[in-house]
Structure formats: C-alpha cells, structure tokens
C-alpha cells in the first residue's frame, strides 16, 4: 500500500495476549510499533542498532531485539513485552528478585534485562548451549553464574547493576 508517498502495510500482532492491528509505515520497527502504535513504553530504545539489548522482547517466547525486527516480521505472532511479564500488583518472581538484589539503578536497561532473563531460562531448559557450555548434547543446561553472565552479555547496563542482575537471575533460575 502507498499512502502520501509512504509505503504502508497492515499488521496484526498479539501483544501480551491482546490482538493489535495497525496500518504502519513499512519502515517501522517492532520496537516503534510497540511504543508508538500500541502505546506500551516499557520497552526502551538504547541504540536502534542491535547493540545494547534495551529493546529486548519475546516473540513466541524467544527473545529478539525489537529495534532490529521490522514490525511486519511480527505479523501474526505473539509478542510479550515487560508489561506482559508482570505488573506492580502482581510482580513476576524475577521482577521481585531484581528489586531485592538492587538489579538496576536508572532502570532504563531493566525491561530488556528481565525479558532476556526470562527467555534464557527457557533456552537453557531446552538444552540450547552457549559458548561456555561444556556438554553440548545435554537435554538441559544448568545455569551456573558463568552461563548466566555469558547469556546476558547482549544486554548492556551502564549504571553497572551487573552484580544485582546476575544475582537475581541466579536466585530464580540458577543451578
């Protein structure tokens, strides 16, 4: 479709369980679809270059960088953002652990860290190895501190909340 010289497309995405449709500029990233069109601003833009992890969300339970995903690629898929992980009346246990371990300072990278943390737990449970995994054929990977640190290294934090983040993930999912 073309609208005022801009190529547009209609996308329908389930976000946190509710169906969302929008006619969008085809250049729109999933990140901007979520923030601008759906109006959920918990997912953050830290670089728009796939280098910081702040925009991490889940598509069909797998983590993706929403700044590097075009919204049209998510058409028909199930997207989970930080708002779908838990809310202030019912925090997810990883969210509570982040508060207990002071796993953030400014909180800007936090949505991405938590989405990554939730997804890495299912990756390890499915036996997906990382570069520090010894047994590449195990059905399930134990989440040692080294495993968690490695698997979280795509999520930058400049406030330096690393210790608290890893402690929180380890408490909830660690071996």
């Amino acid at each position: 479709m073309e609208h005022d010289g801009i190529s547009t497309a209609k996308v329908t995405v389930r976000v946190n369980g509710s169906s969302q449709s929008a006619a969008i500029d085809t250049r729109t990233s999933l990140l901007e679809l979520i923030r601008q069109h759906v109006g959920l601003t918990g997912t953050k833009r830290g670089c728009n270059q796939g280098a910081c992890g702040a925009c991490t969300v889940l598509i069909d339970d797998q983590r993706v960088l929403s700044c590097l995903t075009l919204a049209v690629q998510a058409d028909g898929r199930e997207v989970t953002t930080i708002e779908g992980i838990g809310d202030t009346t019912q925090l997810h246990r990883l969210q509570s652990a982040f508060i207990d371990h002071d796993g953030f300072q400014c909180g800007y990278c936090t949505a991405g860290q938590i989405c990554s943390g939730v997804a890495l737990a299912s990756e390890a449970a499915a036996g997906v190895p990382s570069v520090v995994t010894d047994d590449l054929h195990a059905d399930e990977v134990d989440l040692s501190l080294a495993e968690i640190r490695e698997r979280m290294s795509g999520n930058l934090c400049r406030c330096g909340a690393h210790n608290g983040i890893i402690a929180a993930i380890s408490e909830v999912y660690g071996s």
């Binding site: 918990g42 833009r45 202030t88 969210q95 508060i99 953030f104 909180g107």
Partner: peptide
C-alpha cells in the same frame, strides 16, 4: 532499604522523557 521506585522500574512503568506523548 530497597528502592522505592523499584516496582515501577521493573515493570516498565517508570516514565522517561521519550515515553511522553
């Protein structure tokens, strides 16, 4: 004391400048 803004920061509820419309 744990941060008082903790619940809003871990749920994506804290409002940063670019979040305001």
């Amino acid at each position: 004391v744990s941060r008082l803004d903790g619940p809003s920061k871990v749920t994506g509820g804290a409002t940063f400048t670019a979040d305001i419309d």
